[in-house]
């Protein structure tokens, strides 16, 4: 991606090749997350939590303290860490199977408690690690290894929209959905990750960022085709935009009532994005 060429390697990212498939969104999402760690000077206080999923090897890539978690339990592990040591910057990095299926109960309750944690959520519409089975975010009609005829809403339910859902919790300070399909979207994504970090830094509540990132391998598409699929299909079901922002502005103290935005402007702009 363009960022790799235009910027140097963030300090908190290790200088090793990742084991991700070429064109996988995890790589760019890692970089944006690492940039936020550097930007806010968190290398010495951050702990990264990597649950089962393609990004379980996070510890190989981030030069920060890390822990592996059971599938779905990252936010419970994060709650324990943050409560035990509020000086830590607690970061979870979770897939859609993890955060929105097996770990949904932990997700909802961590959001509801308003834990001071930052959750980076990678929505790739499948279970990447286990070979492309249906995820709670799989699109209607999308073929996966467990929906060979395509996801049928009548049978499997509709895709779960996490950014919208998270915004509904008083405990969530920031919720945005972003994509990575062109440099402009990547810049937006970086800003969103930074905001989700700010939520924790300002102790405003949970910071949440949902990143639409294609699993090229399980889509069985070239990286280019996969990006087009994100634009045409994924963004249509999962509109990009800021769903919640009650971060304190410079001269303003945090109040739960402050600025709960909906995503209209951003959503409509997706397919016309430059």
């Amino acid at each position: 991606m363009t960022v790799n060429k235009t910027l140097g390697r963030p300090e908190s990212l290790c200088d090793v090749p990742t084991l991700y498939c070429g064109g996988c969104g995890h790589g760019v999402a890692h970089r944006l997350t690492a940039e936020a760690i550097d930007h806010f000077g968190l290398r010495g206080s951050a702990v990264g939590i990597a649950p089962a999923g393609c990004s379980v090897l996070l510890y190989k890539y981030f030069d920060i303290d890390t822990i592996e978690s059971a599938h779905g339990r990252a936010l419970a592990v994060g709650t324990g860490m943050k409560r035990a040591n509020p000086d830590l910057f607690v970061l979870t990095y979770q897939g859609d199977g993890d955060l929105a299926s097996i770990g949904m109960c932990e997700t909802i309750h961590t959001a509801n408690r308003g834990e001071s944690i930052t959750a980076v959520f990678i929505n790739n519409a499948v279970y990447g690690m286990t070979g492309g089975q249906m995820a709670p975010t799989t699109l209607p009609g999308q073929r996966t290894t467990t929906t060979p005829a395509g996801r049928d809403i009548a049978r499997e339910g509709a895709p779960i929209k996490m950014a919208e859902m998270m915004a509904g919790f008083d405990g969530v300070a920031y919720s945005e959905r972003v994509a990575l399909y062109d440099p402009r979207q990547i810049r937006r994504a970086r800003k969103a990750v930074f905001k989700a970090f700010e939520a924790q830094i300002t102790n405003s509540g949970l910071g949440f960022v949902e990143i639409l990132a294609p699993c090229v391998t399980n889509l069985k598409m070239t990286p280019d085709k996969a990006q087009q699929w994100v634009i045409d299909e994924l963004c249509a079901t999962f509109p990009l935009g800021v769903y919640k922002d009650r971060l304190p502005t410079e001269n303003q103290a945090t109040t739960p009532a402050a600025a709960t935005q909906t995503a209209t402007a951003e959503c409509g702009s997706v397919t016309h994005a430059d």
Partner: peptide, 24 residues
């Protein structure tokens, strides 16, 4: 100290894991 009523035992044991990892 810190007391948290978790949403389930699944959550409590994983909160225990996270807190234990900090050395507490």
């Amino acid at each position: 100290g810190v007391f948290v009523q978790a949403e389930s035992e699944l959550a409590s044991i994983n909160m225990v894991l996270g807190a234990a990892a900090t050395g507490a």
